[in-house]
């Protein structure tokens, strides 16, 4: 498996920038620029990245700092050598799986949330998100891929947040305040009905469709 030289991960406290310490500065620079240009507008000015620097060269650190600051982005250095300890939000080793994307197979990360996401909490992930619990009103899940809630989903969910219109939202009881998929928004009916079966929301013919599924 070829590992990305540069990975940007979304977490509860912001973004983390993971850099392969064996890569050269040129490769890293090209990769970072590519990542940032892929999603223009996603990283607004002032966005801070946490960079783990334990095994990075000083010149590389400086280089990364320059690239980001040219775009008005900031870097916070952190010296954690180990991967950050599992917060409640994310399990220690997110399982990796592969998705077919324009003929290319690329590794995608799945964030597994092993508890109920409560009001005011936000889970952001570049990949898909699996919630082993409820998503309560006032909570937000933002995923680059799909979202699966093994419980009741009452919060705001945004699947395919960076434009993936094939992303879906699945929940055992799907009653969110809003479902967003890619650039489409569907809001809940003003009088919420209780749903008794698992449902899936996806985009079909330019609309968000919700249909019951078997689980």
């Amino acid at each position: 498996m070829s590992r990305d030289l540069v990975t940007i991960k979304g977490g509860k406290d912001g973004f983390r920038l993971l850099v392969d310490s064996s890569a050269s500065m040129e490769e890293i620079e090209a990769e970072i620029k590519k990542k940032l240009d892929e999603n223009p507008g996603f990283f607004p000015e002032g966005t801070k990245f946490e960079l783990e620097v334990a095994d990075l060269d000083r010149s590389v650190k400086k280089g990364i700092n320059q690239i980001l600051s040219q775009r008005g982005l900031g870097v916070e250095l952190s010296v954690k050598k180990d991967p950050p300890p599992a917060t409640d939000e994310q399990s220690q080793m997110p399982p990796q799986y592969f998705i077919q994307h324009d003929g290319n197979v690329e590794a995608q990360e799945m964030t597994v949330v092993e508890h109920t996401v409560r009001g005011g909490e936000e889970v952001t992930s570049q990949g898909s998100v699996l919630v082993m619990g409820n998503v309560n009103p006032g909570a937000q899940i933002i995923a680059g891929g799909s979202i699966d809630v093994r419980g009741t989903c009452r919060g705001m969910v945004h699947a395919g947040a960076w434009g993936d219109i094939s992303a879906v939202v699945i929940a055992d009881r799907l009653m969110p305040t809003q479902i967003r998929i890619a650039n489409m928004i569907a809001r809940s009916p003003d009088i919420m009905e209780k749903s008794d079966f698992a449902e899936r929301a996806y985009i079909k013919d330019g609309q968000i469709i919700i249909e019951p599924i078997e689980r």
């Binding site: 409640d88 409560r118 009001g119 005011g120 009103p137 006032g138």
Partner: peptide, 13 residues
């Protein structure tokens, strides 16, 4: 209830 939910989250943190 919304605020209680938030508080429970804060207590967990």
């Amino acid at each position: 209830v919304r605020d209680a939910d938030k508080i429970i989250g804060e207590l967990g943190r």
